[in-house]
């Protein structure tokens, strides 16, 4: 049986957070997590409440996404402060490492 929530169900259920492989150790391997939140900052707090420690991998102590970590809402890259990014039921949030080709590292 497909345990994934269908998109029509999702629209009524909350915000779907797509978890990158590097952070699935926090989510017991789950690649998607459904949460309720009105903005992106609250969403990450709710994610951390469910999976303690995951938020500080994504954000630094100043509440900013770490360098080379990108947060997308639907297909839009979040550029402002997370509190200003409103979320609605049915939104999809992706947390992704950016590519850093050519880095001196």
């Amino acid at each position: 049986m497909d345990s994934r929530i269908r998109s029509e169900e999702l629209a009524h259920s909350g915000v779907m957070v797509h978890i990158p492989p590097a952070l699935r150790s926090f989510t017991d391997g789950q690649d998607e997590v459904l949460l309720e939140a009105g903005d992106a900052a609250s969403l990450l707090r709710a994610l951390d409440a469910a999976f303690p420690g995951i938020r500080e991998r994504i954000l630094d102590e100043m509440g900013r996404p770490r360098p080379y970590v990108n947060v997308f809402v639907n297909d839009e890259l979040v550029r402002g402060t997370l509190e200003q990014v409103a979320l609605s039921r049915g939104d999809a949030v992706h947390i992704l490492p950016s590519v850093a080709g050519g880095s001196l590292a």
Partner: peptide, 8 residues
């Protein structure tokens, strides 16, 4: 760094 390098 944390595994994956970008996570702090």
């Amino acid at each position: 760094l944390n595994p994956g390098e970008v996570w702090g």
